[in-house]
């Protein structure tokens, strides 16, 4: 219905094709692990980037883990928030619905991913994250302050033009979904394995959650 992936799925029940991150957190009643955080970031930015290229949806902030949907095949998409339900007509201009910048979407995604890592912890407790993941989230959540600019639409233009200097400075400014994906890929021993690896992590997250749900249902 959202145009962002396969048909919407309901709550965990055994035959669904997608689970929300919120459902996963509630079912396990514990935070996601670091590898899952890297994977959800990478996969979600991948789908957002693809959707942006197709211009199939307005940019929306991520308001809750309920919006982040992990699909059976390992894809991760962003569903509309309750208040954003219903696509605007194709001809609707900026006045037709609230748009936001790519950096704002990334910022909101970073915040929600952090909250998923922090799930269940008390207010006076803080999870010790590995420095690279903390740095990723820190930069995602502070992107707008990074350099005060909100460059948009340059990602296709600079495709393939990065050099080592770009690689070195990338951590200082996350401005696009692609920047996030590059950082996530750099976290792996072999960057080229990022698409397969992160898809497999999300596929496993879905499968294990469904397995747990089935088990708990049987116990009940």
């Amino acid at each position: 219905a959202s145009g962002e992936g396969p048909p919407e799925a309901g709550a965990a029940g055994g035959t669904e094709d997608a689970l929300s991150l919120e459902e996963i957190l509630r079912l396990y009643n514990q935070p996601i692990n670091e590898e899952q955080a890297w994977a959800v970031c990478y996969q979600c930015c991948g789908s957002l980037r693809a959707a942006a290229a197709r211009r199939r949806q307005p940019r929306r902030r991520v308001r809750s883990a309920e919006q982040i949907r992990i699909w059976r095949d390992g894809a991760v998409t962003l569903a509309p928030a309750a208040g954003d339900e219903g696509e605007p007509p194709p001809t609707a201009g900026k006045l037709g619905y609230s748009q936001c910048t790519e950096t704002e979407v990334i910022e909101s995604l970073g915040i929600i991913i952090y909250k998923a890592l922090d799930y269940g912890l008390k207010e006076n407790e803080e999870r010790e994250l590995s420095p690279p993941l903390e740095q990723l989230i820190d930069h995602m959540a502070n992107t707008i302050e990074a350099d005060g600019s909100n460059d948009e639409g340059y990602e296709a233009a600079d495709e393939g033009l990065e050099d080592e200097e770009d690689e070195k400075r990338k951590i200082s400014a996350i401005r696009s979904y692609r920047d996030v994906m590059k950082l996530c890929a750099a976290h792996l021993p072999t960057e080229s394995e990022a698409p397969n690896h992160y898809q497999a992590v999300c596929r496993a997250l879905f499968a294990e959650t469904m397995e747990l749900h089935t088990f708990l249902t049987k116990i009940k």
Binding site: Y28, Q30, P31, N33, E34, E35, E107, I111, Y114, K115, D118, L121, E123, N124, E125, E126, R127, E128, L129, E134, I137, D138, A141, N142, A204, L205, E208
Partner: peptide
């Protein structure tokens, strides 16, 4: 299954949790 352990420390005023909280 598939879940790793993690360390918990006291929340720090300059830590990422505090920074994220300020944003929300």
């Amino acid at each position: 299954k598939g879940k790793s352990l993690y360390k918990i420390k006291p929340r720090h005023d300059s830590g990422i949790k505090a920074k994220i909280s300020m944003k929300t």
